[in-house]
Design a protein around this nucleic acid. Structure first.
Lengths: 337, 337
DNA sequence: ACGGCATTTTGTAGCGCTACAATTTTGTAG
DNA sequence: CTACAAAATTGTAGCGCTACAAAATGCCGT
C-alpha cells in the first residue's frame, strides 16, 4: 500500500556532500568554520543540510575531535531551586562560547555524586561543575577541569572554588537582627558545608555583640520538615526568643508552620529571616526577608573560571567569594516589648 | 624530578585488554554481557578496568552500536517542579532496563522546545519524552519513539500521550467545593493545555450543578504573579465569592497573597484549592488543599510506553489518562454565612 | 601568459567501540 | 583417545566525524 517506511537512516555528511556536490570534508568545514568556505559552496551545503534535515552526530564529532563543547553540572536535588539561577548564569556565558550544559542530579539521599560525575565524564564533557556536597566522596583526580560552586565539605585540592560568601551572609542576617533590637535569637541549621558557613558567620557576628544564639539541627537535614521540627523545639524550650534565622527559605517555611501552630504570628511575635531569596521568599504571601546569595553571579564566574581552565589559561586553583545581599521584606521587625 | 604529567590519555579497551592479557573484543563483551565470559577472564578484565580507572567512552559506544540506552526528557522550566515526580517515575522503570535519562529545558519564555529536542536527538537518545507545551512548534516526524506527558496543545499524531486526567481533576475540585456548599466560585486559569483541561472539567461539573464560575486569566501565565493579579481582580470585582480554584499551587500562593492583602483569611473568608500537590501544598504552613496529579505514576507509564515503542512492541499511538486524587488539607471549608 | 603565493578543497587515516563471522578451546560421549 | 558439538575468544570491518597534509584553484603583478 503506502510507503513501507524504509527506516530512514539518518543522513550523514556523505549524503549532504553528495547532494551539494562537494566533499565530505567541506561539509565538515562548513559546520565548524563557515568563514573558511567560499560563499557558493557554503550555500550549496546549507541548502543540502536543510533539504535532508541533516543533524550532526554528536557521538561521531566527540569521538573524532575529543572535544564535546559541553560541560557537566552536578547538582544535589532538582528541588533545591538555587541551581536554576546558577544554571542561567552558567549558560549566559557558556552559550556565547558555543558550550552546552548537561545536568545530572546526585539522586537525593543516595549521595551518588561520584556516579553522576562519572556519567557526565563518560559523555566526554570538557569540564565539570560540582554544585553538590562531595562529602566523603573522593572527587579528586578527575581528568577534566573542575570547579566547585558553593561552599562544600571536601573540595578537591585541584578544583577551583567559587561560592557565595555564606559567612558574610550569615553576618548580614545577624546585623539585621541586632539592629532591629533582637537579643534572644534562634538559628535553624543543617549539616551541609553551606549551612556551616552561614552558621559560623551568623554566630560570629552575634558573639561580637555579646549575644549567644540558640542553634538547632546542626547535624540534620535542611528540609521544610527539619525546619519545622527544629523550630518547634526552639519555641517550646525557649519561648522567650524573638527571632529565628533559618539556613534556607524552605526551613523558614517550616518555621512559619511551627509559629502558626502555636498561635503566634510573624513578625509581630517572631521575626524570621531565610536564606536563598528563592521564589518562596519573593512571593507576595510570605514576603520573607532573605539573604540573596547571587547564584547567577556565581554561575557567571564559575563559567569564566571553567573556560579559563579548559583553554589552559588558568594560573592555579582559585577561591573566590561572591558577596550576598540582604533582601528585607515583611517578616522582620523589632521585638515586641 | 617528578613525573611530567604525560597528559594521561584516557585508557581504552585496548589498554585494558593488554593489561588483562585478552583481546579487546573480550573486554567489550565483559562490558555488555559478563555472563558470556568465563569467570577467570571476567575477573582479569574487571581487575584491569579498576586498576586503570577505565571508563567506557559513550561516544564510541553510541557510534558503534547506534543505541545509547538513554532517553531524553524535554521540560518547560526547571522551576515547575512537577517534572521531578515525573522524572522519578521514569527513572524507576528505566534504570532497571539500563537506560539513562537526559534532561533539557526549553528555556522558559523562549519556547525552544524544538531546539531542546534537537539537542537531545543529536546525542542519539533512543526515545523522547515531551513534558512541555509543543504549541505551534511542529514536532512530528521525529525519528525516535516519542511520548508526550501531560495534556498539551498540538500533540504529534504519531506520539503516545500519557497524562494525568486534568478534566477529572478539575471536576474533583468542583465536587469538593459544591459539597462544602460553595456557589459563588472563582477560578484562576492560564493559557496552557493542562490549564484548559482543568478549567473545562471544573466548569463542566459546576454547570451540572447549575453554578457558573467566574474564570480569570484564560490567556495568561500560570505564575504566582499572574495568580496574584487574577485573584486581585476577582476579589475586587466580585467580593461575594467564597471560593477560589487555582490552576496550580503556585497560582494559589498568589491568591493567598491577594487575600491577605485585603485583610481576609483562608479558609474562614475564602476557600482555596490548588493543583499539583506540590511541596508548597504539603507544607505545614500552607496546608493547601490540592489535586495530586500523580505525576510519578504518569512517569512510570510513560517509561513503559517508551520501552514498548523502542522494542518495537507498540501497537499504535495510545492515549492514556491517570486518575488524580484530591488531597484535602486546611484551606477548604464551608462558606461563612 | 606565467610564476609565485594565498585561498579553497579534498583524500587519508584514525577516534574507541561493537557486531558478527571465524577461529580456538573446552567438554563429553563413544 | 578420538570425534564432534558447545562454549569461549578473537579478528575484521565499520559507525560518522575531524585533523591535517596534500592537491587544486584563484589572484596578482610583470
Amino acid at each position: 500500500m503506502s510507503t513501507s517506511t524504509p527506516q530512514a537512516r539518518r543522513p550523514t555528511i556523505y549524503d549532504v556532500a553528495k547532494l551539494a556536490g562537494v566533499s565530505p570534508s567541506l561539509v565538515s568545514l562548513v559546520l565548524q568554520n563557515p568563514a573558511k568556505v567560499s560563499d557558493k559552496r557554503r550555500e550549496a551545503v546549507k541548502t543540502a543540510i536543510a533539504q535532508l534535515g541533516y543533524r550532526p552526530s554528536r557521538a561521531a564529532t566527540t569521538l573524532a575531535s575529543s572535544r564535546t563543547k559541553s560541560i557537566g553540572l552536578v547538582i544535589d536535588d532538582y528541588r533545591n531551586l538555587w541551581f536554576v539561577d546558577l544554571l542561567r548564569g552558567l549558560e549566559s556565558v557558556l552559550t556565547e562560547h558555543g558550550y552546552q550544559v548537561m545536568l545530572a542530579d546526585s539522586r537525593p539521599g543516595e549521595n551518588r555524586i561520584k556516579e553522576a560525575a562519572d556519567g557526565l565524564l563518560a559523555m566526554h564533557v570538557d569540564g565539570l561543575v560540582i554544585a553538590a556536597e562531595p562529602g566523603a566522596t573522593a572527587l579528586s583526580g578527575t581528568e577534566v577541569p573542575t570547579v566547585v560552586a558553593g561552599w562544600r565539605n571536601g573540595v578537591p585540592d585541584d578544583a577551583d572554588l567559587i561560592t557565595n560568601d555564606d559567612d558574610g551572609g550569615g553576618a548580614m542576617a545577624a546585623d539585621h537582627l541586632l539592629q532591629l533590637g533582637h537579643r534572644r535569637i534562634g538559628h535553624l541549621s543543617g549539616s551541609g558545608g553551606a549551612a556551616a558557613h552561614r552558621r559560623d558567620g551568623f554566630r560570629g557576628r552575634l558573639h561580637q555583640a555579646g549575644v549567644e544564639p540558640l542553634i538547632v539541627g546542626e547535624e540534620g537535614d535542611t528540609t521544610e520538615e527539619a525546619g519545622y521540627a527544629s523550630a518547634c523545639w526552639l519555641l517550646d524550650h525557649h519561648p522567650d526568643i524573638t527571632a529565628i534565622f533559618a539556613a534556607n527559605d524552605t526551613m523558614a517555611l517550616g518555621a512559619f508552620g511551627a509559629i502558626k501552630a502555636r498561635g503566634l504570628s510573624v513578625p509581630t511575635d517572631i521575626t524570621v529571616i531565610g536564606y536563598d531569596n528563592s521564589a518562596l521568599a519573593k512571593s507576595r504571601y510570605l514576603e520573607l526577608t532573605s539573604v540573596d546569595n547571587r547564584s547567577d553571579v556565581v554561575g557567571v564566574d564559575v563559567a569564566k573560571a571553567l573556560l579559563d581552565r579548559i583553554q589552559g589559561a588558568a594560573t592555579g586553583p582559585q577561591r573566590k567569594l561572591i558577596a550576598p545581599v540582604l533582601k528585607v521584606r515583611g517578616t522582620t521587625a523589632a521585638p515586641r516589648s
